[in-house]
Computed example of a mutant assay.
Amino acid sequence: MAYIDFREAELSGSLSTAFAPRAEPEVTAHASGFSALEWLVVALARRDSLGSLRTPGRIGSALSRIFGGRGEPRLANPRLEALRRFAVFAWHRGHNVPPSELAAFRDAGFSPNQAETVLESILSTRAVKFARG
């Protein structure tokens, strides 16, 4: 979508600058190798249960439609879904993430260092929560 800033044209005295194409803002990765969106996925995974990782069966899906229930927690982006699944296991099981989830995390383009970063972040948050009671 185009954006025209007429204030800039007024200041410079030229409409050609107002119609110049603008670059879209990029989602940049932090020093950890994760973007803000990816850290948000990790934080939101804290509320997901291990049951959210299972594919609902036909009966479960039908009951959910009839009685209402929590929608499908899966993310449309496969990379973010791999991150969410990894983070859900980390929130609930700590370092005991299944090898299949580690492989899916790696296949989604994440590095072993990023896996350690997520685990350290989650475990330190869990430790603070546990210490507070």
Rank of each mutant, 00 (worst) to 15 (best):
W39T: 04
H30D: 13
I59D: 08
A23T: 08
P56L: 15
P21S: 11
P21Y: 02
T28K: 15
T55C: 06
G69F: 04
A45G: 10
W91F: 02
R126V: 10
A82C: 10
N96I: 00
Y3G: 11
S121W: 02
I59G: 08
S61W: 01
R54G: 12
N113P: 00
L75W: 06
L11D: 03
V118R: 01
R79L: 08
I4H: 13
Q114F: 09
S121M: 03
S111K: 04
V88W: 00
S124W: 05
G69D: 10
R58W: 10
S64G: 14
R84Y: 05
A90S: 15
N96T: 02
S100P: 02
L11I: 05
G133I: 03
R84Q: 15
R70T: 14
A62V: 07
A31S: 10
R7E: 14
P99W: 07
F6I: 06
S121H: 10
S124I: 04
L40A: 14
A36K: 15
P99L: 11
F86N: 09
I66R: 14
A23M: 12
L53T: 15
V97M: 02
P78K: 05
N77D: 15
L80N: 05
V27Y: 11
P25H: 11
S16R: 08
A131S: 13
L80R: 09
A31R: 12
F130D: 15
P112N: 09
A62M: 14
P98G: 04
E8G: 01
I59E: 08
E26I: 06
G60A: 13
T117L: 08
G13T: 06
P98Y: 09
S64H: 07
N77S: 11
P25D: 13
S100L: 14
R106P: 00
A18P: 04
V118T: 09
A115Y: 05
P21F: 05
D48T: 00
L50W: 02
A9M: 03
R7C: 03
L102S: 07
F86E: 11
I59A: 12
P25M: 14
L50D: 08
E26Q: 15
A82W: 07
L53V: 15
N113E: 13
F67N: 09
G133D: 14
S64Q: 12
G71D: 14
S61N: 10
E8I: 03
A43W: 02
R54V: 08
L40N: 13
R85Y: 07
G69Y: 07
I59S: 06
V118G: 03
G13D: 09
R132T: 08
L11Q: 10
G94K: 00
E116H: 02
E116V: 02
M1Y: 12
H30K: 03
E24D: 11
H92L: 00
D48S: 04
G51V: 02
P73N: 11
A76S: 12
I122S: 04
G69L: 06
L63I: 12
Q114S: 07
A2H: 08
R22P: 01
I4G: 08
G109T: 04
L123W: 00
A108H: 08
V128F: 09
A45C: 04
E101R: 05
G33I: 01
I122N: 03
L75R: 11
S100N: 12
V88F: 01
